[in-house]
């Protein structure tokens, strides 16, 4: 006799499959906000638990990736807040003077040198290949804000990666 999984078991299997599929994306998004791999893993763990608790509220499985990304970004920002960092709640960047820097050795290294707000937008846009609207939804900001952050990030990435204007 074949045992038929219960609704709860099916939900658990479905959830696990979705999280496994997108696990690395969740890590990248969290790492964009946080300063260490360990913190990013903590944020992913918290996000997975929260997502599981409200999994039955997600009515469209196709939206799962964006939904998970939003939760992990929120968890990462909360963790960052707890860590005693100065958080800029407006769009302006720290007004420190420019300093000479070595070129980055790879894209990820360059991304980590961006201001925090730009990092999250860049990771979602370039690594997760979300469009601007999706990135805005995930970050909970207006599309114009995302475009502004991406625009500033592009300039910085060009410098850090010695990329020519295109």
């Amino acid at each position: 006799m074949e045992l038929v999984p219960t609704a709860a078991e099916r939900a658990r299997e479905q959830f696990s499959a979705v999280v496994t599929r997108h696990g690395r994306s969740l890590f990248r998004a969290a790492r964009a906000v946080l300063d260490s791999d360990a913190d990013a893993e903590d944020a992913v763990g918290e996000a997975v638990l929260r997502a599981w608790q409200s999994w039955d509220r997600l009515r469209t499985p196709e939206a799962a990736r964006a939904w998970l990304l939003k939760i992990v970004v929120n968890c990462a920002y909360e963790l960052r807040k707890k860590q005693g960092r100065v958080t800029y709640t407006d769009e302006l960047e720290r007004l420190a003077g420019a300093t000479e820097e070595e070129p980055a050795h790879g894209l990820w290294e360059a991304v980590l040198r961006l201001p925090e707000e730009q990092r999250a937008a860049v990771v979602l846009y370039y690594y997760e290949e979300l469009n601007v609207a999706e990135t805005a939804k995930t970050l909970g900001v207006a599309q114009g804000t995302v475009k502004s952050r991406l625009s500033r990030a592009r300039e910085r990435l060009r410098e850090l990666l010695n990329e020519e204007e295109s």
Binding site: R12, F15, S16, V19, T20, V48, L49, W52, W55, D56
Partner: peptide
């Protein structure tokens, strides 16, 4: 983590 998810 996924194997040890708590009850919702």
């Amino acid at each position: 983590l996924l194997e040890t998810l708590p009850q919702q």
